[in-house]
């Protein structure tokens, strides 16, 4: 008898995926800016526009991916944003709802976090 496990079932990944997208977006923004400021604008004079546009692009991609995940969590997993629904039934379907629910919430949180991360490029036009 084989039991479904993490690797086989592929269910749990959705719980960390939105966070991973945020992390990737965050690190990319940081690295792009850091490398640009260290290599091209070491004296602080060079404009930041290339970074601005790259970050904007990366941000759109990240938001798109989170949106896709949210749809997935909503549709396939039956996630919702209720607070008072306990999702505590002893059924496999309920566990799936739970994963979708958490994933959907994480999508919302990380949408905001991604937007936060992108805000600085709207404010600064130089490295220093």
């Amino acid at each position: 008898m084989r039991y479904p496990r993490l690797i086989d079932d592929r269910s749990i990944w959705i719980m960390v995926a939105p966070s991973v997208i945020w992390a990737a977006h965050f690190l990319l923004c940081y690295w792009i800016a850091a490398i640009w400021c260290a290599k091209e604008a070491a004296d602080g004079s060079a404009p930041l526009q290339p970074v601005t546009w790259t970050v904007a692009g990366v941000t759109l991609v990240a938001l798109g991916l989170i949106w896709a995940l949210a749809r997935h969590a909503w549709g396939r997993y039956g996630g919702s944003l209720f607070i008072t629904r306990t999702i505590a039934d002893d059924r496999a379907q309920e566990r799936k709802h739970f994963l979708g629910h958490v994933a959907l919430l994480l999508c919302a949180l990380h949408t905001l976090a991604v937007i936060f991360t992108a805000l600085p490029v709207l404010v600064f036009d130089r490295c220093w």
């Binding site: 965050f26 923004c29 940081y30 800016a33 850091a34 400021c37 602080g44 930041l48 970074v51 949180l109 905001l112 976090a113 936060f116 991360t117 805000l119 600085p120 490029v121 404010v123 600064f124 490295c127 220093w128």
Partner: peptide
């Protein structure tokens, strides 16, 4: 460090207050 770099971390530091 460049102000732009600092600002990314400032943003994340504010965001963590949400959860």
């Amino acid at each position: 460090l460049p102000n732009i770099s600092l600002s990314f971390f400032s943003a994340a530091s504010e965001a963590v207050a949400l959860p």
